[in-house]
Design a protein around this nucleic acid. Structure first.
Length: 189
DNA sequence: GACCAGATTGTCT
DNA sequence: GACAATCTGGTCA
């Protein structure tokens, strides 16, 4: 992404990531997809954010420099992928919730054991599985590692739908979820 | 489509 | 010891 991209406001980054591609290169091949759904997690007034209760071993990279991957384990079996935002020491991130599959679709289908392309990356744990992301990528620099975000297209404001976030029990009323209007690849309408 | 049960374990209190 | 930024596969409509 362009210099300074990750220095912007977290909600602004969450919107601008829509339309860009997330790519992962592994020995098995390259897989990528266009980002169509994101959620912002903030440091102030947002108890749903992992950083809300201070720094721990798990959320350490959230407090590091922006533009890096924050990968964590949940529900006993899933990994979720976030982009760290905000200056070092603050603790904010953008959860990537869904992709429109682009490259390496056969490999994604094999990893996910499904051939339905709309279900391949339509959820935060699904896209992580499809791209082969694990805790190994925690802390990876998204501009220079095998796991990277590259500019593709710009989604205009009229094409972005803003709603409340999914799967959380706190701060459920905050409008911090964004997705591309009409996309069949989002986790849910 | 809506709703629901069950899977399964790292992390923090 | 409780919980979790989820998914799948089942039921019913």
């Amino acid at each position: 992404m362009p210099p300074g991209f990750y220095l912007q406001d977290t909600t602004s980054i969450a919107r601008q990531l829509l339309g860009q591609s997330l790519l992962h290169a592994t020995p098995d091949g390259v897989t990528s997809g266009r980002i169509v759904e994101t959620e912002a997690y903030l440091s102030l007034g947002d108890p749903a954010c992992h950083a809300a209760r201070g720094q721990t071993k798990r959320n350490t990279v959230m407090f590091g420099p922006p533009g890096h991957a924050y990968v964590y384990f949940t529900y006993g079996m899933y990994w979720l992928f976030n982009v760290v935002t905000a200056p070092k020491g603050v603790g904010e991130a953008v959860l990537i919730r869904a992709l429109e599959p682009l490259d390496g679709i056969p490999l994604m289908q094999a990893r996910r054991s499904t051939s339905n392309s709309t279900l391949l990356c339509s959820g935060p744990a699904k896209l992580v599985q499809a791209l082969g992301i694990t805790i190994t990528q925690n802390g990876a620099n998204l501009d220079s590692s095998n796991l990277r975000i590259e500019p593709r297209i710009r989604i205009h404001d009229e094409q972005i739908v803003t709603t409340t976030r999914i799967g959380i029990t706190q701060a459920t009323d905050l409008p911090l979820r964004y997705y591309v209007k009409g996309s069949p690849f989002i986790s849910r309408p």
